[in-house]
């Protein structure tokens, strides 16, 4: 088990390396000289030279990359070009809202989606199955911001149940947190629920076609037990896989949702940094979000061994 974990962690290293390379290349992909991009149009030659020297831009690219990576690995993410505050500090102050939103979304999604998918698989081909799946496709197809504005329009503007925008942290006022976090959570959950419900249905259906399900029927196991005990457990691996890869949708959704609801989280910070062309901040955010995604999928790989005894590397 420990050996497996060590191997899996080792396998993420090259992936992280590629991510770092892409993030590094991003700055050099831009037309023109990174120094003038960073300094802005109005910079004097002296300022440019100063930035150049500070960033080591005169060194060969490979050396620059290694230097940059070394800094990052030491936890030195640099200073924001605009606020001149440490990037790490800026990111830290935005973590809370995003984290609470993400945890709430994953919890709500799994609680809704898995029963939905199992139910659809059990009622396969019938009206209820089609209805559930139609809702899932709809959820998957409606853009996050349309869902968000739709919810605001109906539940905030018309019904007046929730505030239109803003965010209160759980630690400050739990009641206000619930009021402000409900709509963003619902918004973020639509895609995730659709994704997980669909894969649950199709994996359960696929397992139901396996030979051992026929064996179970032949020994007189009731259909409900076949679906819940035999099929769902065997379908766990693909479901967990999608929960993991769906985290990418979740992160993308956070960026949009936080903009719609004006929540001061990481997603908004991404948009702000991009609009301000705050390169050190952009680079750090991409690295961080990718790392989160990689770690989630690492956790998923470890979960495989819990659900499937055959996977013991």
């Amino acid at each position: 088990m420990l050996g497996y974990l060590a191997r899996r962690v080792a396998m993420t290293l090259p992936v992280m390396g590629v991510v770092a390379l892409i993030v590094f290349a991003l700055l050099h992909l831009a037309p023109g000289d990174p120094a003038s991009i960073m300094a802005g149009d109005a910079a004097s030659p002296a300022e440019l030279a100063e930035i150049r020297a500070r960033l080591g831009l005169d060194a060969p690219l490979a050396v620059q990359f290694v230097t940059w990576l070394g800094q990052i690995l030491q936890g030195n993410l640099g200073l924001s070009l605009h606020s001149h505050k440490p990037v790490a500090e800026m990111i830290g102050s935005r973590l809370g809202p995003t984290l609470s939103l993400a945890v709430a979304t994953v919890t709500v999604s799994l609680l809704v989606a898995i029963p939905m998918g199992v139910y659809a698989a059990w009622r396969r081909g019938r009206l209820s199955d089609r209805l559930v799946m139609a809702v899932a496709v709809l959820g998957f197809s409606t853009p996050v911001f349309v869902v968000g504005y739709g919810l605001i329009y109906l539940l905030s503007l018309k019904a007046g149940w929730f505030p239109v925008q803003g965010f209160t942290a759980l630690t400050i006022d739990p009641i206000r947190f619930l009021r402000t976090a409900t709509l963003p959570t619902l918004t973020l959950s639509t895609v995730y629920i659709a994704l997980v419900a669909r894969i649950t249905r199709s994996s359960v259906l696929e397992v139901l076609g396996e030979d051992f399900v026929r064996t179970a029927r032949a020994k007189g196991v009731p259909e409900a037990r076949i679906v819940l005990r035999h099929a769902l457990r065997n379908a766990a691996v693909p479901i967990v896989t999608v929960v993991g890869s769906g985290a990418a949708f979740l992160i993308g959704g956070v960026v949009v949702t936080e903009s719609v609801f004006n929540i001061p989280g990481l997603g908004r910070l991404v948009v702000e940094s991009v609009l301000a062309r705050d390169y050190p901040l952009i680079q750090s955010l991409i690295l961080l979000l990718s790392l989160v995604y990689i770690l989630i999928n690492l956790a998923v790989d470890v979960l495989y061994t819990v659900f499937d005894p055959r996977i013991r590397y």
Binding site: A248, I251, G252
Partner: peptide
């Protein structure tokens, strides 16, 4: 590596 970066 590319897929590890959330696409949006």
């Amino acid at each position: 590596g590319i897929m590890a970066i959330p696409s949006i």
